[in-house]
């Protein structure tokens, strides 16, 4: 029983070891301890989706996860999807379709969509909109985001 511990985890392919307070949120750990400020904090009660990351391959709210829980886990964040000049395909689709404006919700959408493309049927716009509905965007009205996901889902083909 402790309120502080040392954790080791893999973030975007790199192994990281840090001492953390038990109560430190994974969102704060990624942003402020590791300096991965691409993961954003929009509500800290699990509603807005801005802080979404991949935890062992599935999307998760980093504001509802303790850093200490991620000991031994594999985390992927927006920084792992691609770089300026070498965007990942979800990032590129967002750029092509103007799927972002202020960019604050964007990393959360990109991570959720990465999960969607890996694991979920996205054959209709309704399915796409439903799968996106745990992420709030206040700028785009979602239409260009849906356009981007539609294109990605078609390129992916049906899930087997």
């Amino acid at each position: 029983m402790e309120d502080r511990a040392t954790i080791t985890l893999t973030v975007n392919g790199l192994t990281q070891t840090r001492a953390v307070d038990a109560r430190l949120l994974l969102s704060d750990f990624l942003r402020h301890d590791l300096g991965l400020t691409g993961t954003h904090v929009g509500c800290e009660h699990g509603v807005c989706g801005a802080c979404t990351i991949l935890l062992d391959g599935r999307s998760a709210r980093s504001c509802l996860t303790l850093a200490i829980q991620a000991d031994g886990a594999t985390i992927e964040t927006v920084e792992g999807l691609g770089r300026m000049g070498d965007l990942g395909r979800v990032q590129q689709a967002f750029r092509d379709h103007h799927g972002l404006q202020c960019g604050f919700c964007t990393p959360g959408f990109l991570m959720t969509i990465t999960d969607m493309l890996r694991h979920h049927p996205l054959e209709t716009d309704d399915q796409i909109r439903e799968a996106l509905s745990g992420n709030i965007c206040r700028c785009t009205g979602y239409q260009h985001i849906v356009d981007a996901v539609r294109e990605l889902a078609r390129a992916r083909g049906p899930l087997t």
Binding site: M1, E2, D3, A22, R23, L25, D28, E44
Partner: peptide, 24 residues
């Protein structure tokens, strides 16, 4: 909106978990 301090137990088993609860 940050949680208050707590002690954290990573339970290895059900017995471990309920023992920690009992000690809380």
């Amino acid at each position: 909106m940050k949680p208050a301090r707590f002690d954290y137990v990573r339970a290895e088993s059900i017995a471990h978990a309920v023992e920690a609860l009992a000690g809380a």
